[in-house]
Design a binder for these strands. Structure first.
Length: 516
RNA sequence: GGCCCCGUCGUCUAGUGGCCUAGGACACUGGCCUUUCACGCCGGCAACACGGGUCCGAAUCCCGUCGGGGUCACCA
């Protein structure tokens, strides 16, 4: 029975790199009929754990990464918050102390710092001298008499090597000598992450520890602890991390400004901001950032597209397969095929996956996804009237793959705006309207006469008009578009006219003609 | 700096000694379609970090170099 876990800290946001780690853990559990556990690493007691956790939980749920045990669902091994498990950790510390695998250390931070600096000066690797180690009551009494306070440190071995068989890394060796006597319990009695991690993984019966590569170097101390505690060693798999676009550095939420210098990244952000602004969502740099999952949710990306893209960031099935459904990923995923090298996040490729997945959707589904954006933007009633629904349906169909993200419906606001509300792109107006004025006046009559007022009829009407006038279609079609939509780009003009209907089309042309 | 990890087109990757004059995808780019935009179609550019071995034969194995990253907290 495979049991995996994802252990986020309540930071207030779900990092895209975290998603990949969670996904791989989830996939592994789901494909084997095992369990995926969510544990909250909140040992550095913050104020608003619940508040800082909610976006993470929401993000995971939105992505379809559900957990069998953890916050909000409970489970037989709870609590699943590290802050509520301190007695478990203290008991483990006691056992480590009793077994001689850890010791109380009374060195002050300054004394420690001095040792570190001395080692650096002499250009030798630092290793704590254990000068203030206390293993007997007498020693403790003496140090405490000096007013010192104790932390608990691991008493790491000084010889031999640890051999780790990592599912993605292969065989990795560490010399015990180069490991530090890490602190596992602070002077105030609270425990540190590594200890908590080992205890929890054991308590929750985690069989496979799948986590980011940055934890590889931390593994020896964890193995030391779990062996000292008599726990079985889980199977480890250290994933390459998700890197910045065009670099090998770890992707970081705080470096958005730097990423914005990357053209593709800037494009993605700009596209997102436009949509977010239209629906009244705050677009400040901190809360609205493509490194965070919430960004995609806000803009209307498909969770299955993000899942698909993330799965391929460091994993592949073969030389061809690109598009996977959730179910296919569950069936095909394997840690053996996870890459070792970091994979950098490519906004354009994500968008390509989004596009593909969105175009797979049936019209009805697209409609459901798109309507909330129009509602939030105040372009349709909530819920939309039957007439509005009709227009949305036609617009989505006519837009075709121009809508890649649900929020892209806002590219076509003019269907839902009154003539007065519709914004005019002055540059487009200046470019196409003046020289086509006369033609536009004449073409108006074709629109009056067209029967029925649908795209094929209108197209025929325009071609007849063009033939009769002896002009090129370009001399009239752009003017019509600008007059009717206010823009120079968009979906097919005839579709646009048909969706707008005769009355509104004529009204807008009239309006354009009457502009000073 | 010590220790550990990593190194195939710009990016994600296929590749486990001959099928590789290195395949696919995204991006870029030329053309077609369309007098918008998007899609689609056809074509192009573009990589085994470097140097030594081993071998009849190396992107694939070994050694070294270089480069990148991670980690060395009373953070997680």
């Amino acid at each position: 029975m495979i049991r995996t876990r994802f252990a986020p800290s309540p930071t207030g946001y779900l990092h895209i790199g975290g998603v990949r780690t969670a996904l791989f853990n989830w996939l592994l559990a789901r494909q084997s009929g095992g369990q995926f556990i969510l544990r909250i690493d909140d040992t550095d007691q913050q104020r608003n754990v619940e508040e800082a956790l909610q976006p993470i939980l929401d993000g995971l749920r939105w992505l379809g990464i559900d957990w069998d045990e953890g916050p909000e669902v409970g489970g037989p091994f709870g609590p699943y918050y590290q802050s509520q498990r301190s007695d478990r950790y203290r008991a483990a510390v006691e056992r480590l102390l009793d077994g001689g695998h850890a010791y109380r250390d009374y060195a002050t931070p300054d004394e420690l710092k001095a040792e570190r600096e001395a080692a650096e000066r002499e250009k030798r690797p630092f290793r704590y001298s254990r000068r203030f180690m206390a293993e007997t009551p007498e020693q403790r009494a003496r140090f405490e008499g000096e007013g010192r306070q104790a932390v608990v440190r691991l008493k790491m071995p000084t010889e031999g090597t640890l051999v780790l068989d990592d599912l993605v890394r292969g065989r990795v060796e560490f010399a015990w000598l180069s490991e530090q006597d890490h602190v596992i319990q602070r002077a105030d009695g609270t425990c540190l992450y590594h200890l908590a991690n080992v205890v929890d993984d054991h308590d929750f019966q985690i069989t496979h520890v799948v986590r980011a590569e940055e934890h590889l170097s931390n593994t020896p101390r964890q193995v030391f602890m779990l062996e000292a505690l008599g726990y079985p060693r889980p199977t480890y798999a250290h994933l390459p991390f998700v890197a910045e676009p065009g670099s090998r550095n770890k992707l970081s939420k705080r470096k958005l400004d730097k990423y914005l210098k990357n053209r593709d990244f800037a494009q993605l952000v700009e596209h997102g901001r436009k949509i977010a602004a239209a629906i009244g969502h705050a677009v400040d740099a901190d809360g609205f950032n493509p490194v965070i999952v919430d960004f995609y949710k806000t803009v209307g990306y498909l969770p299955e597209a993000i899942i698909n893209y993330m799965a391929l960031l460091g994993w592949s099935l073969d030389d061809k397969a690109e598009h996977f459904s959730r179910q296919e990923l569950i069936e095909k995923f394997s840690l053996e095929r996870v890459n070792k090298a970091p994979a950098s996040f490519d906004p354009q490729k994500l968008m390509a996956f989004e596009d593909w997945h969105f175009q797979q959707l049936p019209a009805q589904r697209k409609l459901e996804l798109v309507v909330p954006f129009l509602e939030k933007a105040g372009l349709v009633a909530s819920p939309p009237t039957p007439d509005q629904r009709q227009i949305v349906e036609e617009a989505v169909a006519a837009a075709g793959d121009r809508i890649k993200v649900a929020g892209d419906i806002l590219l076509f606001p003019y269907f839902f705006q009154s003539d007065e509300q519709m914004a005019l792109d002055e540059k487009a107006v200046a470019k196409y309207l003046p020289q086509s004025r006369e033609l536009l006046v004449k073409f108006r009559d074709c629109l009056v006469a067209a029967e029925p007022f649908d795209a094929p009829t209108l197209e025929r009407a325009m071609h007849d008009f063009v033939d009769a006038e002896g002009i090129k279609i370009g001399q009239i079609i752009h003017a019509v578009r600008v007059a009717v939509t206010g823009q120079s780009v968009g979906m097919g003009v005839f579709d646009t006219l048909a969706i707008l209907g005769r009355r509104r089309s004529l009204g807008r042309i009239e309006r354009a003609l009457n502009r000073p």
